[in-house]
């Protein structure tokens, strides 16, 4: 989640503290507290499963990069595909996830330009993973 959850919660804590000081516009204070409650609700939905989802996603993307490395002979993708998550702090998993998804984006672009039958199969697998990535991030009340 971007902005990062700990930073947002810290900001909300400060906002709640400021809201206790008399003299604020009640409508503005109410709106900010309402939005803060909604944000806390969104964080609550995601936080317990976030590390698991990131580990699962990183593993899935590494598998796709391995296929891309084999198809196109790309050493960079091969190196990334052999990695493993060892630091399970969400911030560390998110950093790795960003690196892997950046490589996946490049692989997707490369696959679209390739004509081989195996490239079509890999392209379909990439779309499957992108769809799965939105399922991992789904929250109750999502409009889509």
């Amino acid at each position: 989640m971007t902005p990062k959850v700990p930073e947002v919660i810290a900001e909300i804590a400060g906002l709640i503290g400021r809201s206790l000081v008399p003299g604020g516009d009640p409508a503005e204070v109410g709106a900010n507290l309402g939005l803060s409650a909604a944000l806390l609700g969104l964080a609550a939905q995601r936080i317990d499963g976030m590390a698991q989802a990131l580990v699962e996603e990183n593993r899935a993307v590494r598998a796709l990069l391995a296929r891309g490395a084999e198809l196109f002979g790309d050493d960079g993708w091969a190196v990334l595909s052999r990695g493993a998550d060892e630091n399970f702090r969400i911030s560390a998993l998110e950093r790795t996830n960003a690196e892997l998804r950046g490589a996946l984006l490049a692989l997707h672009e490369r696959v679209e330009q390739a004509v081989e039958e195996s490239a079509r199969a890999l392209e379909a697998a990439i779309w499957d993973e992108l769809r799965a990535s939105t399922e991992r991030r789904l929250v109750i009340g999502s409009p889509v």
Binding site: P3, L35, L39, L130, R137, L138, V139, G141
Partner: peptide, 21 residues
Amino acid sequence: REPIMVYPPWALQNAQDRAIL
């Protein structure tokens, strides 16, 4: 730093990706 600036990326970014799909 108002909370309304966080609400769109948290509540809509993934929904927007799904809308694209």
